[in-house]
């Protein structure tokens, strides 16, 4: 006698097909954003006084007029804004980011050389801050109103207020200068040969302070987010229902409160990746780590605008990729966006 007027949605396409479709859709969505950033970077370069050739010649200390004209021809710098723009876009399309003055090399290759170090730092810092943030924020939410919650909440506020580079310097003063436990900077010990395993440990030892600093500056965000999300979910009907159904407290906390509360945290990882990359500029400078951030600082110091523009574009691309990966992870955690590519927004 029961009738179900509405049936379940049609069977979706197979998992792999949906995955591929989602990835393509997400990449297509990123293209206008990347194009806008490329245009923005062009105008930023146009804003600068003198062109790249002036800077380049100043950089190598040569004043040969013929050489300058040659270069201008090659980069279309002698023409009007329109044709300069066209040349710029054409170059970008073949991934030619121009010449670095400071390094007298192709910008692309300089960036590729530094990228792995930054990636290593970023990924470790994200993993560290998100996981500790989830645990601490979750604890604060479970003990809300108590002294632990007050402590964690206040700690988050204080941590949020401290400049990352200062935190790094405090770390150096304490752990490198006073206690001499950790190296003061750099990515590895110079002129040392520890063998393959030793080198990895050496790099890890050098990364402890910078990664911790970077993670600490973003820890507060995840702590507060997780705490808020847990409290939100705790007030939801399904948690009340789970308690009424007599589920063990462990299941209620982990499966019914914790898991749904992870969703905003995952979203935030994507949103924050740009900020984190920005934050690594100062941290890499403080700890003399040869990454993308320190490279940006060098580019600014040497007025190497081609290089700076290249880093801006590369950084944006990196953020876009991180966001796509995060969206895919989100799809795994939340079935409501898994269904069709079109609903995800």
């Amino acid at each position: 006698m029961t009738s179900h007027s509405d049936s379940m949605p049609n069977a979706p396409p197979s998992g792999a097909a949906r995955f591929v479709r989602f990835v393509f859709w997400r990449i297509a969505q990123a293209i206008p954003v990347l194009a806008l950033v490329a245009v923005g970077v062009f105008f930023l370069l146009e804003l600068a006084e003198g062109d790249a050739v002036d800077a380049y010649l100043a950089g190598i200390g040569s004043g040969d007029a013929g050489f300058a004209a040659d270069l201008r021809e090659r980069y279309g710098l002698g023409d009007g804004v329109g044709s300069r723009f066209a040349t710029y876009i054409m170059r970008l399309l073949v991934l030619d980011f121009g010449q670095s003055v400071a390094f007298s090399r192709d910008v692309g290759s300089v960036i590729m050389e530094r990228l792995p170090n930054t990636l290593l730092m970023m990924v470790s810092a994200i993993a560290l801050s998100a996981s500790f943030g989830v645990v601490l924020g979750g604890l604060a939410a479970l003990r809300r109103g108590g002294p632990l919650d007050a402590g964690i909440t206040f700690g988050a506020l204080v941590l949020n207020a401290m400049p990352g580079f200062w935190l790094g310097l405090l770390g150096i003063i304490l752990f490198a200068v006073k206690l001499r436990w950790l190296p003061i900077g750099g990515l590895s010990t110079l002129d040392a040969d520890y063998g393959p395993l030793g080198s990895v440990l050496d790099v890890a030892r050098h990364l402890i302070l910078p990664v911790t600093t970077l993670a600490l500056t973003y820890l507060a965000l995840y702590m507060r987010l997780m705490r808020g999300a847990m409290i939100d979910v705790d007030n939801s009907g399904w948690v009340l229902a789970a308690r009424a159904r007599g589920l063990p407290a462990r299941n209620v906390v982990l499966r019914h409160i914790g898991r749904p509360a992870l969703l905003p945290v995952v979203t935030m990882i994507g949103l924050q990746s740009g900020t984190l990359l920005g934050g690594s500029i100062v941290i890499e400078t403080v700890f003399s780590i040869p990454g993308l951030g320190a490279l940006a600082y060098e580019a600014v110091n040497q007025r190497d605008l081609q290089l700076l523009a290249g880093i801006l574009l590369a950084g944006t691309l990196l953020v876009v990729i991180v966001n796509i990966v995060v969206d895919l992870a989100y799809g795994l955690l939340d079935p409501r966006v898994r269904l069709g590519a079109g609903d995800a927004q």
Binding site: L271, G274, G278, I281, I311, T316
Partner: peptide
């Protein structure tokens, strides 16, 4: 929002 915030500020000030 996609351009790293601090990198953009840095580039703008330097230009």
């Amino acid at each position: 929002q996609t351009v790293p915030t601090f990198l953009l500020a840095l580039a703008l000030v330097s230009v």
